[in-house]
């Protein structure tokens, strides 16, 4: 199934597949979500189509920010972080325990989690590496940055 890489990634974040696999198309390891109108007219030699969902590189799936935004609205495991941590996160930094305002989901160590700001906007995702609620060790890294929206700027360099 074309969308298997996506399904596996999403299940790790506690959400089922939220897209119709029949509308997913793949080119050079990059996955796109089309719609019935787009799918009807699309040619094989397209460069980009519909909603970019992510890419598979060396067997690993890297989600797009569009996909992360979609699943953040569907109850994926996520942490809400404060304003300062949000800014540091989109600059590529990890999240400290003291920056975490709220945890939504099981938050198991070594699992992925979406990172959301105070407005509920998804800024990316990370890997839980510490105890998120251990306030005695508030300067410890809680979530390691895997991918953040600051990537849009870094790609242009």
């Amino acid at each position: 199934m074309k969308a298997k890489a996506i399904t596996n990634f999403l299940s790790g974040l506690g959400v089922p597949l939220v897209i119709n696999p029949d509308l997913v198309i793949e080119k050079n390891g990059r996955y796109y979500l089309t719609n019935p109108v787009l799918k009807q007219i699309i040619r094989q030699d397209f460069f980009y189509a519909g909603v970019f969902l992510g890419k598979v590189k060396n067997g690993k799936f890297f989600p797009s920010f569009n996909l992360l935004t979609m699943i953040s609205k569907k109850g994926a495991n996520r942490i809400i972080i404060d304003k300062k941590s949000a800014w540091l996160f989109i600059c590529g930094r990890d999240i400290l325990v003291k920056g975490v305002i709220r945890i939504l989901g099981p938050a198991k160590k070594n699992s992925n989690v979406l990172v959301v700001n105070e407005f509920g906007e998804c800024l990316g995702f990370g890997k839980i590496v510490g105890n998120l609620s251990n306030k005695e060790r508030s300067n410890d890294v809680a979530v390691q940055n895997v991918s953040d929206i600051g990537d849009f700027l870094r790609r242009e360099r």
Partner: peptide, 12 residues
Amino acid sequence: LERCHVANTVVY
């Protein structure tokens, strides 16, 4: 297109 959540475009 990705940054601005565009969903209705095909690029060639």
